[in-house]
Simulated assay, not measured.
Amino acid sequence: MPSKRLNLLIVAAGLGVNFYGLYGVKFGLPMVGYGGHFQFLTVVGLLVTTLSFTVRIINLLTGTLGPVYEALTAIATPVEGLISALYWPIVLYDKKMLVPDDTIFDLPLALDISLHLIPTIVCWADFMIFNTKFKRSPIHILAIYAFTMAYFVWVNVCYEHNGYWPYPLFGMFKNDTQRGAFFLGCGWFCSVLYKIIAKGHFNIHLGDKKEAVKNLKDRKSQ
C-alpha cells in the first residue's frame, strides 16, 4: 500500500512548484491583451493542476472531496502530459511556433521546467502510484474532450479581441476547420494518454485489488 505521508509530501512539493510557476508567469512575463496569461494552454492546464493538487491535499488530510479530486486529476493528468509532449519537441524544432518573431524567448530554465515538466511528473506519480481508489470512467474521456473544445472556443474568443493567436502555431492553419481538427486531435491524444495511465494504474495496483477481493470473500465466509 503506497505511503499516504509520501503522497502528501510529493503533492505538496508539486503544489509549491505550481505556485512558483504561476508567480513567475504573472510577474516575470508581462502579458497584455484580452485573456492575459490565460490565453495559453500551459497556464490554463497549470491552473487546473493546481486546483487538483490543492483538492488532493485536502482529500489526504480529511478524506473528503474525493469525487472532485477524481474529476480534476482525470483532466489534469493527460492535459499536462499533452503539454509536455507538445512543448519540448516544438521548442527543439522551432521556438517561433510558440512565440512571435518579435518576442525575446528567454524563459529561465527553472521556470520553464516548473511550467512544462514537473507538473506532469507529479500528476502522473500521484495518479498511477498513490491514487488507489481510481476507477476508469467514460465520463472522464468526455470531460477531456469538453476541456479541449472549451479551450478551442476560448482561444478563438481571444483572437477576435486581440487579432492574434496566443501561439503562432495556431495561425499556421488555413481556417477554423483545420484548427478544430488539430484540437480534436489533441483531445484524442489526451484520451489515449488517459487510457495508458489507466492501464498502467490497473497493472500497478493489481495485487491490491486481488487482496481487496480476497478480504471481501473472507468476510462473507465468516
Rank of each mutant, 00 (worst) to 15 (best):
C186M: 13
M97G: 01
G33T: 02
I75A: 04
V157L: 14
Y151R: 02
K209N: 01
K195I: 07
T77L: 08
I113G: 00
Q178P: 09
K133R: 15
W88S: 15
S52M: 13
W165A: 04
I58K: 02
F182G: 13
F53H: 13
G180V: 02
N7R: 09
K26I: 03
P78D: 08
S191C: 15
I197C: 10
A198K: 02
W124A: 10
D106N: 13
I118S: 00
F53Y: 14
V44W: 12
I10F: 11
L65A: 12
L72K: 04
L22D: 01
L216S: 07
Q39K: 13
Y23M: 02
A74E: 07
F105N: 08
Y159G: 04
P168S: 13
D101E: 15
I104K: 10
L72Y: 07
T177W: 14
L92H: 07
V79N: 14
V79M: 14
N59G: 11
T103Y: 15
A150S: 15
I113S: 00
I121E: 01
N175W: 05
G171F: 02
A212G: 07
G63W: 06
F202L: 11
I90F: 04
F147S: 01
F40A: 10
L117F: 14
Y159T: 02
S3M: 02
P100I: 08
D208Y: 01
P89E: 06
I141K: 09
V43Q: 12
I204E: 01
M128S: 10
L193K: 04
K133A: 13
A198N: 06
V17I: 15
F127T: 04
Y20V: 06
H37E: 11
V99M: 11
C158K: 02
M172G: 15
P138R: 08
E211P: 03
L142Y: 13
N7E: 12
E80L: 08
I204A: 00
L206C: 01
V44T: 10
D106P: 00
K210H: 06
K210G: 00
L109A: 09
G180N: 09
H140A: 12
Y167M: 07
C123M: 15
K220R: 06
F170E: 09
K135E: 02
F19S: 03
I141G: 00
L41G: 10
A150P: 01
L65Q: 09
